[in-house]
C-alpha cells in the first residue's frame, strides 16, 4: 500500500495522526498532514484505510 497526502487540501483536523500515529503526523507550523512512512508495513493497512475514511477533506489516499 502506497499513501499519498495532499497538503493543499488538508485542513489539519488531525484524524489521521490520531488514528495511525506511526504513519501520520501534523506539521508544527500549520497542522497539515506529514507522512512518516509512504509505504507502511501490511499490518497497518487496516488502520490506514480507517484513517483515509475518517479524513474530512480527502487529503489522504491510497494506491
Amino acid at each position: 500500500m502506497r499513501i499519498n497526502a495532499d497538503t493543499s487540501v488538508c485542513i489539519g483536523a488531525g484524524m489521521c495522526a490520531l488514528t495511525v500515529p506511526k504513519v501520520f503526523d501534523q506539521s508544527e507550523e500549520d497542522g497539515t498532514v506529514v507522512l512518516l512512512q509512504k509505504e507502511p508495513p501490511a499490518e497497518l493497512d487496516e488502520a490506514v484505510r480507517r484513517a483515509v475514511n475518517l479524513c474530512p477533506s480527502g487529503a489522504i489516499s491510497i494506491a
Binding site: 485542513i11 489539519g12 488531525g14 495522526a17 490520531l18 500515529p21 503526523d25 501534523q26 506539521s27 508544527e28 507550523e29 500549520d30 497542522g31 497539515t32
Partner: peptide
C-alpha cells in the same frame, strides 16, 4: 483563517 490556526490544535 483556518491555516493560521490548525497548527495550534494538532493532536500533539
Amino acid at each position: 483563517y483556518r491555516k493560521l490556526l490548525t497548527g495550534q490544535f494538532t493532536v500533539r
